[in-house]
Design a protein around this nucleic acid. Structure first.
Lengths: 142, 142
DNA sequence: CTTACACTCTCTAGCTACTAGAGGTTCAAC
DNA sequence: GTTGAACCTCTAGTAGCTAGAGAGTGTAAG
């Protein structure tokens, strides 16, 4: 049985954040001690690890909620789950494409920026350049 | 001379967001018409394009502020900007790896999920795995 | 058994990076 | 010279946390 603090440590989450996830219904209400302190089992550790990983991948809490629902209701017909999976897959692929473009730019930035002064530094120029970007105006936020 | 609206269109930014950037000091105060409306030149277009691009690359507004400072004061060494870029690159590469794992699993799920039930779904398991993550607890937020 | 103290509890308020709306003004085209 | 889209300021709301106040709990040493 884990205290909220050790669960936090194991998953790299702030204690407050775990309580927040419970509050908005992403984490289920855990068992409590006589005195009212939360105690967690391995299922909860898994669930929280999943949430944190998904967050690191840029999924919104709403998207994560959908994915968790897939696992919480295993007797649902597959069509529903399939639709959600397809939707998420599409998002994942968009995200991958953007991240790859991004990696390329960052790698170029790091390479070109070696030893000079800021005046010579291409970091700013690379990002300042808007010859390409002016055509793709998709959203930034998750 | 650009109105705030056309600047917004050119950079894929919301009008409100531009005013917000001005408010927090990321965008400098532009000239105004007699009637008090903002008018922008090409420098401001460049600056905003830079900010937006950097945001798309996952830089926080604070990191962007630092980068803009470097460009505003070009006689400082580039090391600082380089460090910021490297940090972002590392994060991007971590995210790419995890996203690829998730894509694989979602693809498998969509393929296999034809007639079965959610019970077979491995999506959660992929991200639930915390064998690696338990050692690297870097921040999520930019 | 009791005392120490790290940990937990709830609650409220603050943070970043926007976004939306109310209510009013300006600009440019007709 | 009037219409209407675009602009103005201001306030408040959003997601996803994060920090602090003030009080209670759990455990281990003395």
């Amino acid at each position: 049985m884990l205290t909220i603090g050790s669960l936090a440590k194991k998953t790299g989450t702030k204690v407050q954040t775990i309580r927040y996830y419970e509050q908005i219904g992403l984490m289920l209400e855990p068992g409590r001690t006589e005195g009212g302190q939360r105690r967690y089992g391995d299922d909860e550790l898994d669930r929280l690890a999943f949430i944190r990983h998904a967050r690191q991948l840029g999924f919104s809490l709403e998207a994560i909620r959908e994915l968790l629902d897939l696992s919480d209701h295993p007797h649902r017909p597959c069509l529903e789950a399939d639709a959600i999976a397809r939707k998420q897959l599409k998002q994942v692929e968009q995200r991958l494409a953007r991240l790859e473009a991004l990696r390329t730019e960052l790698m170029r930035m790091v390479q070109e920026c070696s030893g000079g002064q800021t005046a010579d530094c291409r970091v700013l120029e690379v990002l300042r350049d808007h010859s390409e970007c002016l055509t793709d105006h998709d959203e930034i936020g998750a």
